[in-house]
């Protein structure tokens, strides 16, 4: 889309939305949000960037192929499930640790790892479809 305003605003808007998507992802355990919604927000952020600046700009910004991001997400989710094996508890049992970082107790868990996996799968899958659709002939999908 050839709009100067959109092109100028898009990077900021995208950055803001991506930040917000991570925020939504992390707060999901206690407040409305979570990996799925966060992933959708991130996907729409990248879609906006793509509409404004073209497909190749998004690809360059992403560095990895979107499908690899999706696959990595699935991998993380599986790791989160299989970690329970090391502790001799059933598959996908949530495991929690509470390390203290700079005086603040931070709750880390396999559940969070799993949610990050969901986030990445959703972003990667939707963005790879959107980019492939948007891309013109000659540009690789």
């Amino acid at each position: 889309m050839n709009s100067l305003i959109l092109r100028t605003v898009a990077p900021f808007l995208t950055a803001l939305m991506l930040l917000f998507s991570v925020f939504v992802l992390l707060r999901g355990h206690n407040e409305p949000g979570g990996g799925f919604i966060g992933g959708l927000i991130a996907a729409s952020a990248l879609a906006i960037y793509g509409i404004a600046n073209g497909v190749s700009a998004v690809r360059k910004a992403l560095w990895f192929h979107p499908m690899s991001i999706s696959a990595f997400g699935l991998f993380l989710a599986c790791v989160a499930g299989f970690l329970s094996m090391a502790f001799a508890v059933p598959f996908m049992t949530g495991l929690w640790v509470y390390p203290v970082v700079l005086g603040v107790e931070v709750a880390l868990s396999t559940v969070m790892l799993f949610d990050i996996g969901v986030y990445l799968v959703v972003v990667g899958a939707i963005i790879s479809i959107a980019l492939a659709m948007e891309g013109r002939e000659g540009e690789g999908p």
Binding site: G28, H29, N30, E31, P32, G33, G34, G35, F36, A77, C78, G81, F91, M92, G94, W96, A107, S109, V111, F114, D115, V118
Partner: peptide, 19 residues
């Protein structure tokens, strides 16, 4: 350990479904 029931169901109680 979560107060958002929907999210807890998705990622923990029914995590295998989500996978």
């Amino acid at each position: 350990h979560g107060s958002n029931v929907v999210n807890v169901i998705i990622v923990d109680f029914r995590g295998t479904d989500t996978l």
